[in-house]
């Protein structure tokens, strides 16, 4: 284990060793696995409660496939733009990273806006999360995903701030790579959501 790092004259240490980078990346990956378990259990809960409509509105009554397809496209394109941001990070091109991150954040915001629109529409139709077990499970599963996306957007904004203030330093780029994992993970969860919630709901 080398302790090779830049040290300033005041005795402080800066910089990230290769081992620390690997530990942080792996640790984040393990965290994503725990998040996957949370989503998996929310999916299981949704499936169990999917017949619990209590005489109220069902998926067929409420879901709009074009709307969901729109959300899916926004998220898929945003995953791709984050991929381009990742390439720019590895390539060391700070301005390109910022550009692609801004685009990703905007697409993400579009997704969240569409989701809020869908939720408020349903609530206005007396199909809110307190109407039935099915709706409680729907709002919680899809809403938890939406909250994760929102946290991702805030994190992107924080990272843009770091890029502007500190530049594309090794710690910043290590954080960006972990944020990319997070963003792609959320797109994977969304595949589950449209495949288990929306599409079967409409059938």
């Amino acid at each position: 284990m080398t302790d090779a790092a830049a040290t300033s004259s005041s005795g402080a240490a800066t910089g990230l060793s290769p081992e620390q980078k690997e530990e942080k990346a792996f640790g984040f990956w393990v965290y994503l696995m725990t998040d996957a378990v949370i989503f998996a259990l929310l999916f299981a809960t949704f499936i169990v409660l999917s017949r619990g409509t209590a005489g109220g509105p069902t998926g067929k009554d409420l879901f709009s496939l074009p709307h969901t397809f729109g959300e899916t496209m926004l998220l898929l394109v945003s995953s791709t733009t984050f991929g381009f941001a990742t390439l720019a990070t590895i390539g060391g091109d700070r301005r390109a990273v910022i550009g692609w991150l801004v685009l990703t954040a905007l697409l993400g915001l579009g997704f969240v806006a569409m989701e809020i629109q869908e939720f408020s529409g349903m609530i206005a139709l007396d199909a809110g999360p307190d109407r039935s077990g099915f709706l409680s499970a729907f709002f919680t599963l899809v809403g938890t995903h939406g909250v994760h996306v929102s946290v991702g957007i805030i994190s992107i904004l924080v990272m843009i701030g770091q890029l502007v203030i500190k530049g594309l330093t090794p710690p910043v780029s290590s954080r960006l790579l972990r944020l990319a994992l997070f963003w792609h993970f959320l797109d994977i969860v969304w595949i589950g959501i449209f495949s288990i919630v929306y599409l079967p709901g409409v059938l």
């Binding site: 690997e22 990346a25 990742t86 390439l87 590895i90 790579l177």
Partner: peptide, 10 residues
């Protein structure tokens, strides 16, 4: 997840 230089996969 390695942050290696651009390779085939990346």
């Amino acid at each position: 997840m390695q942050d290696a230089a651009p390779s085939e996969t990346r």
